[in-house]
Design a protein around this nucleic acid. Structure first.
Lengths: 233, 233
DNA sequence: ATGTTGTATTGACAATTGTCAATCAGGGCT
DNA sequence: AGCCCTGATTGACAATTGTCAATACAACAT
């Protein structure tokens, strides 16, 4: 077996009180004192690109919040294919179903190198019961999952492939200002419910039309207005 | 303007203590005494087919639970089309986003005559804070929305139209035992992200192949095994 | 430099799906 | 019955997308 470079690394105990994205994550409403009183450890993990954070159908008592990077949630289809049902960015939460005792409903894989906090289920359930702000934040994360799923249905799974690709690029944050790292053509296909080849063709055509411009590597800059125009039609 | 036969009718104050589906809905864990102490009124509404329960973008302080019938949640697309993102059956909850102060994220319309309970937001938030069982049930409803949305992505928006239609019929509960009421071809199209004509062609072909059998009106009985086979491939 | 590997791109063709228009079928009405 | 209206079905054709195979390209190791 060849050396595996996609092992998740422990990065130390999370330092929530100085977390630079704390205002976006689950514990926004906690005082430093309250954070100190958490008995269970919150660990900081580095998830290299392509590493598996958890597998669909397995159970473990952890919820994850994304601090940096990009995580995909995918499901296995009956015919062996896969479909990506969600993209998680900094501030998003993964594995909420574990709070209800369910095994994970998806397989979580890093699309780009990511840092996540691994939070024991008991920490979340306890804080949910004792802190109003955390409770509200939890409900908001759950609603956010619903909203993102709806976006996948309405924007990324509806209409011709070209329009969906344009919406995907916009969803990925292509504003035209700074370069964005693109997923592989295969992942784009799994995101949009089209084949890898169709995804490749559309991206190549976008390049020819000047709608996207290769920066370096997988980074591109986009013509946001042009993409927005295609996203409608 | 022609007479409107799709007005929502008030059916009286909800009698939760004798509600035949209470075990499936939000207040499963409440004792009769606790139910009596709810100050805000829970109303029982009849929603005729095609009636609008609420509109996307509007705000009102109500959550709804479906007691009978079938409700569709749809969103308006940028190009004027519409996409159905969820189907709600008895026990499902609609409008949870109102608990977070959001306007409704969808337009809710009855696909079949439906009975719903209209619950003031304050009732839910109060019970959520005072009763452990209601709190847990609320989280489960939220997760159920996520799961149903994921099903729309993975099963109803992936693969060729024929397989998606087979999965839709199975989702609608076609077991082959008793007849099921079908949505219109237009709604099937909006459910699957295909055109009305394609939906019609596929259903007609299913009939010719004997996979579905017209019972009476919009009711059909299905060959569950045959559909399940098509759903894979 | 050379090969090796994995991904992206492209071509050729088949299959699917969309578009637009016509026709058909059923229910309600006069 | 005859008419009207709506939704379902079908036909013809164009456009899109999938399939399978070949090629191009970039990163990396030898």
């Amino acid at each position: 077996m060849k050396p595996n470079c996609t092992n998740i690394e422990w990065q130390g105990r999370a330092k929530c009180t100085v977390c630079e994205v704390r205002n976006f994550v689950l514990f926004a409403g906690l005082s430093p004192h309250e954070l100190d009183t958490i008995l269970q450890p919150i660990d900081n993990l580095h998830v290299p690109q392509h590493a598996v954070l958890y597998k669909q159908g397995t159970a473990s008592p952890y919820v994850y919040t994304v601090r940096s990077g990009l995580i995909k949630l995918k499901v296995d289809l009956s015919n062996g294919c896969q479909r990506i049902v969600r993209l998680l960015r900094p501030g998003d939460v993964a594995g909420l179903e574990t709070l209800l005792g369910d095994p994970y409903h998806h397989t979580a894989i890093a699309l780009q190198d990511a840092d996540v906090c691994r939070i024991p289920r008991e920490v979340v359930t306890h804080l949910d019961q004792t802190n109003r702000n955390v409770h509200q934040a939890l409900l908001q994360r759950w609603q956010r999952s619903v909203d993102q799923a709806d976006h996948f249905i309405a924007a990324l799974s509806t209409g011709p492939a070209e329009a969906r690709m344009a919406r995907l690029l916009i969803t990925l944050g292509c504003t035209g200002n700074q370069p964005e790292t693109m997923p592989s053509r295969e992942d784009m296909g799994a995101l949009l419910g089209i084949t890898t080849e169709t995804a490749s063709r559309i991206m190549a055509e976008f390049k020819r039309r000047g709608l996207v411009h290769t920066d370096k590597g997988n980074d591109v800059v986009c013509d946001h207005a042009g993409l927005a125009h295609l996203a409608h039609g």
